[in-house]
Structure formats: C-alpha cells, structure tokens
Design a protein around this nucleic acid. Structure first.
Lengths: 187, 187
DNA sequence: AGCCTCATATACAGAGCTGTATATTTTTCC
DNA sequence: GGAAAAATATACAGCTCTGTATATGAGGCT
C-alpha cells in the first residue's frame, strides 16, 4: 500500500547486503530512502522488526521466483529436479546478487534464541523442505537426504559466490548435483 | 610469549563466535579476559587487528589439526581423500564447534575491500587449494573441480550445523562426498 | 634499596547508535 | 475553502562504541 514503506524495505535490503546489518544504522537507511526516522518508525516498530520484514520479503521473492520458473519450465516432476540448478545459477549469477539474506543474517545473529536467527533457520528449513518435496515428486526414495545434500551445494555456492563474485562455484555445484540426483534416482 | 595476549585472543575467538563480531565490544572482551583495555591495545593496534589475528589463529588451528590427522591416519594419498570427511565430521560435531570463523566474518564484512573480508576469502581459497592438492595426489584428473565441490559441501555443512546444532548435515555431506569422489576417480 | 617493565584502575573525548518528542509543512478528501 | 491525515524537520535523551590519557600498583633484576 505505502510507497514509502516499500522504498524503506528495498533500501534496507540493499544496505544490509552491501554493508552488513549491524553496520547499517537507521539514519543511513532513511537518508538513502529520502525520508526520516519518524516515517520509518511509523511502519516498523523497531529496527529488529525491519530486519525481520526484510528477511521475509527476500525469502518470498526468491521462493516465489524459483517456484514460478520451475512451474513454467516443465510439468514433469522428474525434469524439475534437473532444471532446478539452471535457475539457481541464473539467480546467483545475476549482476545484483549479493548473497543470500538468511545465511548472512544467521552469521550476524548467532544466538539461537535471537528472533532474526530463528527466522533465518526457519527459512533455511523451508527451502530444504521444498527441495525434499521436489525430490519426492521426482521419485527419489531418500528425498530428505538428497534435499539436504542439494541444499548444502546451493547454500555453499551462494556463500562462495558472495565471497568472491565470478567464482564459478555454481557451475561445479550444478555438476555435483547432477551426479547426486542420478545416484539418488538409481537407489 | 605473553599469556595475556593469548587469553585475549581465546576470549575474543569465543565471543565473536557466540555473539558476532560487530556485536562484541572490546570492553566485553577485556572484562571476560580479566584485564583492561590498555593491555589489549598494547598487543593489538586496533580492534580490526584483533579480528584479523583471531581469524589467522582459527585458520591455523583448523588447518594444522586437519593436516596432522590426515598425516597420522594413512600415507596413501588415495585414502586421505576418503578419510577427509571423517575428520571434518569430528571437527564439526565437536561440542564446542560454533561455526567456521571465516565464513561468518565474510558475512559481517561484505565489502570486498575490507581487510577482514579479504582475509576470509583468502582463507577460503587456501582451504580449497589444500583440497585440490589432496585430490591431485589421489589421482583425480579434475582436481580443482572436485576440490571446489567438496569445499561447497564442507562449508555448506558447517553453515548448516552452525545454524542448527545436531542437524546431521555432515553425515549427508559425507555420503555426497563419497559419491563425488568415486565419480571423479573414474573419469 | 632503586629501577624498570608490566599490568591495572579510571576517566574521558568523540562518535554513532536506537528510539522518541515536538512542531511544522504537505497532501488528501469532502 | 477547510478539516483530517501523512510526512517532514529538528532536536535530544540515553546508551554503547573505539581509542587514548593519566595516574597508580606489583614484581623482577642488579
């Protein structure tokens, strides 16, 4: 509804990624968004609330994008699993990719009781569940196991690519995934 | 040489892992170490210096431990690659494991020009080089590729285990590694 | 004893941080 | 036009942070 709220969310998303969450003050956020603290605190109760909203939006964007891409690409569940890494590659090698929000957030808030950490862990689990669902539909018996392995490759590649752009990590993750998927389908 | 310097390093290592680097003030460090800021700044020029030293020590500890374990386990290069994930599992499932320092540090300092980020990336690369060396000695043709894939699994598993202790990620990483290694040896 | 190095205690400057209070301007809607 | 709502400008309280300055104590060495 509110343009300003969205603007603040987008600016915060960008700044958190490029400078880190704890290193980004609300003053910087409102200045970049071209508004004031009063407005920010009208839409978000605290900075922590803003962080949580940024995480939620980021996860929705990623998950929604991926799910739509997969849906449009093919209807056969077995092919979806094959296509998966093509889209992951597309996502990760996009020029504005700067790391996965929930991975970084969990590093900045290591305490397991911290709300930000909890949400990050929850999102990581949700993504793994989605991978398990894909695997199960594709006829993989040990779907949970494969899902975990694929998530390690994906999150590892995202981590690697964030640490050094153009690392080429995703291409190798893709090859590894192909081998693991084939093996899991045989079993 | 100095006991206090070591004490500060150890305390900082622990606090950085459990609370995050940016969220840990030097006041907290010296209070926990049972000393004062004057002493800390005698041994470390700035907090950034301290962070860099903590990273260096952490990496040396890990790399030294792993290399010794591998050396003592077997002399055959091909077996080393097989044993690798047993030791990784031992390291990661140790009760005091709280994530890999250089992974977290790169998330807290995303700017590629930041010294902390640079050192983190450097350590990540060094570890991958070590894996490539192991792979090459074991007779793997595409050693760099396998090394990258294994590093994704390892760093992904470390990330997962840090996010949620007892996730069992390492066990599945191990299985995946076995498949990938076999495949790479065949090629 | 006297010296010298090491560590401590304490205080503080200067900056940045989150969150709020107050007052003013702009927009919206009838 | 005129009232109600939304956004702004500005200031500030209270806290935490890094890094330094100053003055004091404690232990080893000759």
């Amino acid at each position: 509804m509110s343009l300003l709220r969205e603007k603040i969310l987008n600016v915060a998303t960008d700044l958190f990624q490029t400078r880190g969450i704890n290193s980004t003050g609300v003053d910087t956020i409102v200045a970049t968004a071209g508004t004031t603290k009063m407005t920010l605190y009208k839409y978000f109760r605290t900075k922590e609330d803003l962080i949580l909203e940024v995480l939620k939006k980021g996860h929705q964007d990623f998950h929604g994008w991926l799910h739509e891409k997969l849906s449009k690409s093919t209807r056969k569940p077995s092919e979806k699993l094959q296509k998966l890494f093509d889209f992951i590659e597309e996502w990760v090698t996009a020029p504005d990719f700067q790391g996965m929000a929930f991975i970084k957030a969990s590093a900045e808030f290591p305490n397991e009781n911290n709300p930000v950490h909890r949400l990050s862990a929850e999102q990581s689990r949700q993504f793994r569940d989605y991978l398990a669902e894909l695997s199960r539909s594709a006829g993989v018996k040990e779907a949970d196991g494969l899902a975990l392995q694929l998530s390690l490759l994906i999150e590892g590649a995202m981590q690697a690519e964030q640490m050094k752009r153009g690392s080429g990590a995703v291409a190798y993750a893709k090859k590894a995934a192909k081998i693991l998927i084939e093996d899991a389908l045989k079993a």
